[in-house]
Design a protein around this nucleic acid. Structure first.
Lengths: 158, 158
DNA sequence: CTTGCTGCAAAGTGTTTGCATACAT
DNA sequence: ATGTATGCAAACACTTTGCAGCAAG
C-alpha cells in the first residue's frame, strides 16, 4: 500500500520534526517497508528489505530506528517467543481501530492478527485491569494476550 | 517448604526413572530451589542458589535440567519481556488447581501470580480458543496472558 | 555550520553445544 | 560396566554501543 504510505508521509515527517528528529532516507525506507507489509517482521527481515531500497543502510540503523519508532508509538514491538523481536506499524492514530491480538504457529512462526473476539476480550481485560489495579495497587500500562499452536499446514505435517 | 519438597521427592524420582533419566544431586538441588521459592527465578538466580547447596553444579547443567523439567511438564517457563526466561515449579499435578496469570512490574521486574479473575478469564479464553481454532483451522496449544505496569513502590518512585 | 544520524566493528547478553570426564544405576 | 549427566569453555543468535565521518536542517 504505497498510497497509504505516501499519504502518511507528511504526518510522519511532522511527527519527527516536532521532536527534533530527522526523517532521513534510511528512516523513510524503514517506514516504507513496514507500511507495505501486513506481516510481523523481525529486525533482520526489515534490514534485508530496506537494503533493497537503500543499500547503504546498516543493521544498527535499523535497530536504532525501530527503537525510536517504538518510543514515538508509531510501531509496536512484539515478542512471540522465538528469541527475536517482531515489529508492526501502528496503522491508525486511534489505538482502538487498530487493536488486535495474535495467534502464533509454534512450528513455522506464522502470525495471524485476529480481531474476532476482540470486543469481549477487551471488555474482560479492562475489567480485570481495574480489579488488579485496585487489589495490588498497580498502575497497569499494557497487556499481552497471545495464543500459540499449530497452523493448518503445520498441524497436518506433524 | 522443604516438607512439600520431601513429600514430592518420591514422585519426582519415579517420574525421572520412568523416562530413563537420573535424579542426580544437581537435579535434586535445582528442584529443591524451585520448590522453596514462590518467585519466578531466572536461570542465573537458580544457578546461584543451587551453587550454595551443591557448589560443583555449573550453569549449563542448570539450563539443561530446566529444559528437561519443562519437557517433563514439571516446570513452566515464562518470558516477561526483559530478555531472560523465568522458571516456576508446577505445584499440583492437576493444572487447574495451579493455573494463574501474571502481573509484571516494568521497573523492578517483580511478578505477582494472581488468580482473582481466573474463572472469567479461563472461560473467555476457552471460548476464544474454540472460535479461533475453527475459523483459522489452528490447533491451539497454549496461551499467554500477562499484564504489565508499575507496582506500588515503583509507581510512587517515578 | 551545527547537531543529529550513520556504518562499521566490537562488545554485550542470555543461552546452547562439543567434548572428555564423572557418576548413577 | 554401561550409558547418562556433568563442567568447562567455546560457540551462538540477537541486540547494543563507541566512534569517526556524513548529511539534514
Amino acid at each position: 500500500m504505497p498510497d497509504n504510505f505516501t499519504k502518511r508521509a507528511g504526518w510522519c515527517q511532522g511527527r519527527f520534526k516536532g521532536y527534533g528528529y530527522r526523517l532521513t532516507l534510511s528512516r523513510q525506507a524503514i517506514l516504507a517497508v513496514l507500511s507495505r507489509t501486513g506481516e510481523h517482521l523481525s529486525a533482520e527481515e526489515i534490514y534485508h528489505r530496506v537494503h533493497k531500497i537503500h543499500p547503504s543502510s546498516g543493521m544498527s540503523t535499523v535497530y536504532r530506528t525501530l527503537e525510536l519508532l517504538v518510543q514515538l508509538q508509531m510501531v509496536h514491538k512484539f515478542d512471540f517467543g522465538d528469541g527475536r523481536a517482531r515489529y508492526e506499524l501502528q496503522r491508525s492514530k486511534e489505538d482502538k481501530e487498530d487493536h488486535h491480538h495474535h495467534l502464533v504457529c509454534l512450528r513455522c512462526q506464522r502470525v495471524i492478527n485476529y480481531t474476532d473476539f476482540i470486543d469481549d476480550e477487551v471488555e474482560l481485560l479492562k475489567r480485570t485491569e481495574k480489579g488488579l489495579a485496585k487489589k495490588y495497587n498497580f498502575k497497569i500500562m499494557k497487556h499481552i494476550l497471545q495464543f500459540y499452536g499449530l497452523c493448518e499446514q503445520c498441524k497436518d505435517r506433524e
